[in-house]
Design a protein around this nucleic acid. Structure first.
Length: 334
DNA sequence: AAGCCGGGGAT
DNA sequence: ATCCCAGGCTT
């Protein structure tokens, strides 16, 4: 992995943001792409938001990208391009919490701060047989202080790297390699036979269903798009004109036409196609989406909608749901 | 303290 | 279908 042994705080920071709640295999290509486009923090800071979001497209958790931009510009402008070198200053940056601050502080500056990520929670809870839920306030305190006690203060970077690697390769979530584990005789959970039961989480995720009807409205060879706002998924990404329902709508031309006339201020259109149902599984919700292609014969007056040419649309960032649609329906065919 | 934010891979 | 991932922010 290109960030292992890396000492440039900018590159460490970038890799850690990309890897938040993201597997190494999934983040690797994004990291390479970002380093290629933005060798330094000033390169990143000077680039327009939309271009950066386009590179982040498909990686998910888009607030990370928003905060990445904010922090890049803060460092480039307010800090004259110099990355902060104390734990407290690093922690104060947007998008950086306790884990990422400890990772940067130890990897870049060899400061004695223990990382506590999913791997560390798992290793410590099993090795010491601690059943305090890791997603509780008490649990976070216990595991953080325990991790800092155990930290090798003389080589924090190596220690942090080692315990995470151990969790990722040996003390794995579902099928830990206990039979070949060098810590087997010291592992309390193994002794008790409760490795599979640890770590404990107390909160369960509640999912809801959402039904999206996207109208691909073409007028004068251009298409209407909309930039998503805050307080919902996919902030700062683009989409088409959306009608959302809490329950599915019957799929025929007439029902779709009614949906559209409830949303836009004209009846001068013709529906030319309706796609299959696309399903997108998110952490807290399942989205079912259909795309309805529409030819429009008059302009819309809603200023929130942007009428964009097909070549320009290719430069905008879209959620996976919509890039999946593009895959099946290339824009030049619309 | 609780809820929300994506997408992908393993099981 | 469920869990988890080099977590953090908002309410």
């Amino acid at each position: 992995m290109p960030w292992k042994g890396e000492k440039d705080p900018y590159k460490i920071w970038l890799s850690e943001i990309i890897l938040q709640q993201t597997r190494v295999e999934q983040g690797l290509e994004f990291y390479k792409k970002f380093i290629f486009h933005f060798p330094s923090v000033s390169d990143l800071a000077q680039t327009p938001d939309t271009e950066i979001f386009k590179l982040w497209e498909g990686l998910g958790y888009y607030t990370r990208c928003k905060n990445l931009i904010i922090t890049a510009r803060h460092i480039a402008i307010d800090k004259k391009g110099i990355f902060p070198d104390t734990y407290a200053e690093i922690l104060a940056l947007k998008g950086i919490g306790p884990y990422t601050a400890a990772a940067i502080a130890s990897f870049a500056y060899n400061l004695p701060h223990a990382v506590v990520d999913g791997n560390v929670f798992r290793v410590l809870s099993r090795f010491f047989s601690i059943s305090t839920p890791i997603d509780s306030t008490a649990g976070k305190k216990i595991f953080a202080s325990l991790a800092n006690e155990l930290l090798d203060k003389k080589q924090p970077a190596s220690y942090n790297q080692a315990i995470m690697d151990f969790g990722a390769t040996v003390c794995k979530p579902k099928i830990p390699l206990c039979s070949s584990c060098i810590l087997q005789t010291q592992c309390v959970a193994y002794k008790k036979g409760i490795v599979q039961l640890l770590p404990v989480k107390e909160k369960s995720i509640i999912k809801r269903n959402r039904y999206f009807y996207y109208f691909i409205i073409t007028y004068n060879s251009k298409i209407y798009v909309y930039k998503r706002k805050e307080n919902d998924i996919w902030e700062n990404l683009y989409e088409f004109i959306l009608v959302e329902k809490t329950s599915p709508v019957t799929i025929d031309i007439n029902s779709m036409a009614r949906l559209l006339t409830d949303t836009i201020d004209t009846k001068k259109f013709k529906i030319t196609g309706i796609t299959k149902v696309y399903k997108q599984q998110l952490t807290h919700q399942t989205i079912y989406a259909q795309f309805i292609q529409v030819d429009l014969f008059t302009v819309l007056s809603n200023p929130a909608y942007d009428l964009i040419g097909k070549e320009e649309i290719k430069k905008l960032p879209f959620p996976k749901l919509i890039t999946s649609y593009f895959k099946d329906h290339p824009l030049f065919k619309i």
